[in-house]
Nucleic acid binder design. Structure first.
Lengths: 199, 199
DNA sequence: CATGGAGACTCAGTTTTTCTATTCCTCCAA
DNA sequence: TTGGAGGAATAGAAAAACTGAGTCTCCATG
């Protein structure tokens, strides 16, 4: 069976843009510029012969076709993610790697994190402050540390914790590339941290 | 939700190669060279960190992972094809376009083909013999004519019919690009022709 | 044993695609 | 009216994909 399909990579641009209803946000998720997303979506629309977005002055809206297409494309990506993770020991060259500072580690239960295997996590502890560079260079996927910043264009999720005084807010920071902020692993880790960190 | 996926276009190479258990045949289906397929598959395997094929001296075999992966990837392509055809008035710029010569048309029932809408067929009749060039240039997707040839690297399916004498074998020829030979539309048309042509 | 064919691999070089960076435009809100 | 936000368009740069030629191994044939 041969399939007549649009260029599959343009579908990623569409899916992200449709989810966010914004080329800019989709671009940030995918780690490219908004122009690139715009071009990819346009290419897809041209090859399908149908408009997927309505470009309004104040943002994007899906057309009927886009509205129909989006959930199906998302579903396909979910299925594919699941199938891929089931057979692949590493995606993009490695497991999801967590860098964590000693101080942050001390705040967490001894056996944290619990779900290393099922989520394919790999923990590198005793990461130094300067190591947000490791995030930028893709050496690690995310960094968990106490406070600090700024982190430039990296995504930051703050997990509140006590005892924290105004002077020394001991908040955990979860830092990663924007495109990874809400992938399965990130979300699982963040949820877990919220649960596990002493309030 | 962000998805950590391999390059989607490498999946097409894998899927075709796995279905045929041959890089060469996959290449022909995709309209590229075998080297290109080999490289794409290798890239996929590297990014997943797992071998999908066992390269035996006398051909290819899937590994356990490949065996697991194939049906899921195929399923995804099917779903995507369906979703895409549902919203797209044209894939790759147009409906599936049939060119048909006057003589061939005369051989067929008046209202042929019946399934134009559901299969998104578009029929251009009175095509000339020389118009296999229209197939090469993607102007039409397939050509239906009486006998003739040779067609070079194009795919040919012969539909036998009578009355045909040794001297003037009135066989219908279905000609298309190799990559389109067994797509949904081609298969439906060919089946239909076999049914409809007087024996 | 040659020997020739088939199919996969490699690698350099080219072509094609994709991305960036900049500039422009429109709309909206202050 | 002005500034900001977001999308569109463009040229040029960067990256990815493809080709084509040569190599290798295995197998079938004579």
């Amino acid at each position: 069976m041969t399939y007549r399909l649009p260029s599959l990579n343009t579908l990623r641009a569409f899916e992200a843009a449709a989810r966010h209803l914004s080329f800019k946000m989709a671009a940030s998720e995918l780690g490219v510029t908004a122009g690139a997303v715009s071009q990819q979506v346009k290419k897809l629309e041209r090859s399908l012969g149908v408009a997927l977005f309505r470009r309004l002055p104040n943002g994007l809206l899906l057309t009927v076709e886009g509205e129909t297409y989006l959930p199906q494309v998302s579903k396909v990506f979910e299925d594919l993610t699941e199938a891929t993770e089931a057979i692949a020991p590493k995606i993009n060259g490695k497991k999801f790697t967590i860098g964590i500072s000693s101080k942050a580690m001390a705040l967490l239960p001894k056996n944290w994190p619990n779900h290393c295997d099922s989520l394919k996590l790999y923990v590198r502890d005793s990461i130094q402050t300067t190591d947000i560079e490791l995030v930028r260079s893709n050496e690690i996927d995310c960094l968990i540390r106490l406070g600090g910043g700024p982190y430039g264009d990296l995504a930051l999720v703050t997990i509140p914790s006590s005892p924290s005084t105004k002077e020394h807010p001991e908040e955990l920071h979860f830092i990663c590339k924007p495109g990874l902020a809400d992938c399965r692993q990130s979300k699982a880790i963040i949820e877990d941290l919220i649960e596990v960190v002493p309030i």
